[in-house]
Amino acid sequence: MPTPPFAQAQRQWYHWFMATARGAQAVRDDRTGFAHIHWENWAPPGWFDEATFQRVARAFDNPDWVDVTLHSYRARWDEAEPDPRSQWLEDKVKATATLSLPAIYIQGSVDGVNPPSASKAVPGKFAGPLRSSNSPAWVISRSARTRTRSRAISSSFSPAIPPTCPTPSTGAC
């Protein structure tokens, strides 16, 4: 992967932080704090509460969470060797110039890590039908309003994409 422009590198500071021995140690010492700052940075306001985060944070106590997380970011920047068990997949991904399947690409208009300007090359990665939308940050919830927005998004892309109905618990949209 090529080195990004300075502005993108600044948005992805945590990638570079984890590539250093001191950054890796900081993640090992406070994995929950490390994850929490990303939830705060990445989530639209109101998307999660502390109780939800604390329930999810138990997963960060998994013995291999830090090693897997560090390796994932280090390998994408060639700061670590890819896992040999997945080399076949890495090779296949790198050999794939474009995807020919139908796709929908939704870009958050206020994405603090990958803003719309960082996604200009996305259409060139698809040879099949591609619909895209630059959407504002939306809070994910199970409300009727969200289901209505989901249907509106789906129908705006293609009539061939059915709305997400019915709701399992009620059978209603």
Rank of each mutant, 00 (worst) to 15 (best):
P159M: 12
A152V: 10
D111I: 02
L70F: 00
C173W: 08
R147E: 03
R22C: 04
D61G: 06
A127D: 06
V27Q: 02
T69W: 01
P168W: 06
D64M: 07
F48P: 05
M1I: 04
F157M: 14
G112H: 07
L89P: 02
F126E: 00
R58T: 14
R58Y: 06
R147P: 00
D49E: 11
P84M: 12
F53M: 13
S119Y: 07
L89R: 15
G112S: 09
R149Q: 15
T167C: 00
A97S: 11
Q54W: 05
Q10M: 14
A80C: 01
D30Y: 07
V56L: 14
S119H: 13
H36I: 03
R151A: 15
A43R: 01
P168I: 03
A57P: 00
R151L: 13
K125H: 10
T170L: 05
S119T: 14
S141E: 12
H36L: 15
G33Y: 07
N134Q: 14
A21H: 10
T170Y: 08
P136N: 13
S155R: 15
A19H: 05
T148N: 12
P166Y: 09
L130A: 07
R74A: 14
S133D: 13
V93L: 15
P84G: 10
S100W: 07
F157S: 05
T3P: 02
Q8K: 13
T170K: 08
I106L: 15
H71M: 00
A59P: 00
P63K: 03
R85E: 12
A80I: 02
A24E: 06
P102G: 01
A80S: 04
I37E: 14
G33I: 01
R22L: 09
E40N: 09
R58A: 15
A95P: 01
R85Y: 01
T3S: 11
V27N: 03
Q25G: 03
P115Y: 07
R85T: 11
I153W: 15
L101G: 06
D78V: 04
A172C: 10
P166T: 05
G124V: 08
